[in-house]
Design a protein around this nucleic acid. Structure first.
Lengths: 142, 142
DNA sequence: GCATTTCATTTGTATATGCAAATATATTTT
DNA sequence: AAAATATATTTGCATATACAAATGAAATGC
């Protein structure tokens, strides 16, 4: 059912949740090619490009909580795509060779994903929306 | 951490998820006053204003799946705020008197919620964003 | 130098939601 | 009218994520 049939279209709560779920689905299908969830894939990409990143930094970059990053890393470690090396209170994350090999495919996925939705709004409207979304996100309390 | 520190700001996946979570949080805190989640609250409001609505219609209006609506209704029924009456393959949802009493408070919550974020973007930018979000949502596959 | 506070990460538990299959009724076809 | 199909709802299970408390290590105060 199209949202246009709903009186709740104008409610930011349902609109933002609905959009997030649609994007989640599009992204999941896209990264299924490499058998990773979108979050796992982005995490791996950062670990490849920034060897030794720490979970806290990853959480900040991906706008996730540290506990969520821990869970994502566990799975990537199970798959032998990254290793965690803990020293004192910090832990460093490194992509394994097997993980590093994926970089080209991962980058292609990023592109494909973008192609999957970019045409709908076009560059202008898309950029404006993104900018407003970030502005609103940033202004809302942690 | 502000998203401005992240290279992934421009990725619609993380932007839309981050925004949805922020809105979820704002909305949850807001409707905690009546001890309901935002979805439960909206569902109840529709049931009050549209006596006999069916779960499928509710799902359409709130952009949720029927199975999710079933779960929401179970909880509202537990709290004696609605009743479900099944006839044949359809079921009709009615707010109980106890549920109906809440209407004024619920409407005030809707207002408060709106006040909680509307000032950040202002009416113009806010409306544009909402319109783009819906346009994108609608265009993405079910 | 021991005690306290701070910081980074992890663990246990909870929420919101979806998908796919099951159920149960209604409608259409033959 | 029996069989096939369509529709509405519910149930079982899975995913993505967060919060709060626990852990463990480092830094600071006295």
């Amino acid at each position: 059912m199209k949202t246009s049939e709903s009186r709740y279209r104008q409610c930011m709560y349902f609109a933002s949740n609905a959009l997030a779920r649609k994007m989640e689905k599009l992204a999941s299908e896209n990264w299924a090619k490499v058998d990773l969830s979108p979050s796992h894939a982005y995490l791996l990409m950062i670990a490849i490009e920034e060897p030794g990143v720490q979970p806290g930094k990853l959480a900040g970059e991906l706008q996730l909580k540290p506990s969520t990053v821990t869970r994502l890393l566990e799975k990537l470690e199970d798959k032998k795509l990254v290793v965690r090396i803990t020293e004192g209170k910090n832990t460093n994350v490194y992509a394994t060779p097997k993980g590093q090999e994926l970089l080209p495919v991962l980058k292609r996925c990023v592109d494909d994903f973008y192609q999957g939705y970019a045409h709908i709004l076009g560059p202008n409207e898309g950029a404006n929306m993104l900018s407003s979304m970030n502005k609103l996100s940033d202004a809302l309390p942690e």
